[in-house]
């Protein structure tokens, strides 16, 4: 078992199906990726460089945008990926400005 699921070729991240350790090397679709953080089981790891504001793909579809630059091998979760939907907080800020 490679320990990850890359649901679509278009996806810039993979789902880890085992916990990953910072510093370990994982072969993702033939390319070696150095894991940058400890990543809990079933969480996601970036397999492309994703710039802040760029779309994040899973299942070949947009699942959010990068809230800061995300590097290959980095844990991708709520600290660096934002939702673009159901954002009443943003709508409220825009009304107040």
């Amino acid at each position: 078992m490679n320990g990850y699921v890359h649901a679509s070729e278009k996806d810039n991240l993979v789902t880890c199906v085992r916990a990953m350790k910072a510093g370990e090397r994982v072969l993702v679709d033939g390319t070696e990726v150095v894991v940058r953080n400890d990543i809990p089981i079933y969480h996601k790891m970036a397999v492309s460089e994703i710039k802040k504001g760029e779309e994040v793909y899973k299942y070949g579809e947009v699942m959010g945008v990068a809230s800061r630059d995300i590097h290959i091998g980095e844990w991708a979760h709520i600290h660096n990926v934002d939702s673009t939907r159901g954002r009443g907080d943003i709508a409220k800020r825009e009304v107040q400005q």
């Binding site: 899973k58 299942y59 959010g64 979760h77 939702s83 159901g86 954002r87 009443g88």
Partner: peptide, 30 residues
């Protein structure tokens, strides 16, 4: 949900969804 002026995240996905590894409602829906 937008009319409530809050981020849906924390409710959808729920705290347990997020701890489990789901990051956004889009990901959960897909």
């Amino acid at each position: 949900s937008i009319s409530y002026g809050v981020d849906l995240r924390g409710t959808q996905p729920t705290p347990g969804n997020i701890e489990g590894g789901l990051t956004t409602i889009e990901e959960k829906s897909l």
